[in-house]
Amino acid sequence: MVSYELSRVAGAERAIIDPFLSDAPVRLSALASALGLRVISAQLPSGISGEIRPDPQTPAGFSIRVNKNDPARRQRFTVAHEIGHYLLHRDEIGDGITDDVLYRSSLSDSREAQANRLAADLLMPDRLLAFWKDRAAKLGEEDVVSFLADKFNVSAAAMKIRLGIE
């Protein structure tokens, strides 16, 4: 089921996003670029996963920095989470939003939860997830969570949450 957050994204931005949600794993860097965002792999302080900051050099006016020391799958979630902030909260970004390893920032917990739900929709689109769950069953996959996590290039923990297992 598509989150309320993804349903709030409309118009031109939804038209940009939708084509990226048809193949797993979602090409997240290309999606960010299509939205006019720059993604930068950076040395961030320990405990900081990523941030979105104003950047007048980009078409969208924002850049995402992701901690290059985090595992690749965590970096993907961080980028999706920051895209979520851009799509849902750009009027609240101000000088920037920095998210710690638990995806908490100075924004309210509800705003962080919204960015997380939108990130999950971007990384693990509903229609694709249903297709690959069915495919896993037909292939006789014993560890469906790992199979799907690998297919979508996300952590097993993120996949379990998306599947409602945890």
Rank of each mutant, 00 (worst) to 15 (best):
D134F: 13
R14A: 10
Y103A: 08
L139S: 04
K151G: 08
L28H: 06
G36D: 03
R135M: 14
E51P: 08
M1N: 10
G50E: 07
V9W: 09
A12C: 15
R104M: 13
A157E: 12
I97M: 04
R65M: 10
K160Q: 07
D109F: 11
Q75A: 03
R104P: 09
D121G: 05
V26G: 10
I16R: 05
M159P: 03
S110T: 13
A149P: 02
R162H: 02
L35D: 05
D95V: 12
Y86D: 06
T98G: 00
S63V: 02
A156E: 08
V144D: 01
I17A: 09
I93V: 08
E142R: 12
Y86G: 03
R104I: 12
K133D: 06
L107D: 07
L139C: 03
D55E: 05
R65I: 12
R65C: 08
G61A: 00
Q43S: 09
L118T: 01
S7G: 15
A32R: 02
T78H: 07
A115M: 05
A119F: 07
A113H: 09
S41K: 10
I83K: 03
A130V: 15
A158V: 04
Q57E: 15
L102Y: 14
S49F: 13
V154N: 01
E92Q: 11
A136G: 11
F77D: 00
A137L: 11
I52F: 00
R38P: 08
M159W: 05
D109L: 13
S41D: 09
L129D: 05
I165G: 09
R14Q: 14
P45Q: 12
K133F: 10
N69Q: 12
D126E: 14
G36N: 02
N153P: 04
K151R: 13
A24R: 05
W132G: 01
E5P: 12
M1L: 13
I52A: 00
L118V: 07
A130G: 14
G94L: 08
R127G: 14
F152V: 04
G47V: 04
R27L: 10
Q43C: 14
S29R: 15
I52D: 00
Y86I: 03
P71N: 05
Q75R: 12
P125K: 06
F20M: 02
R65E: 10
I52Y: 00
A157H: 05
I17W: 08
L37W: 06
V154D: 01
V144T: 03
A15W: 08
G11T: 11
M124K: 06
T58D: 01
R8V: 13
M1H: 11
A149D: 00
A12L: 14
R162D: 06
A60M: 04
G84Q: 04
L35W: 01
S41F: 09
Y103V: 09
W132R: 05
A72V: 10
L163H: 11
S33Q: 11
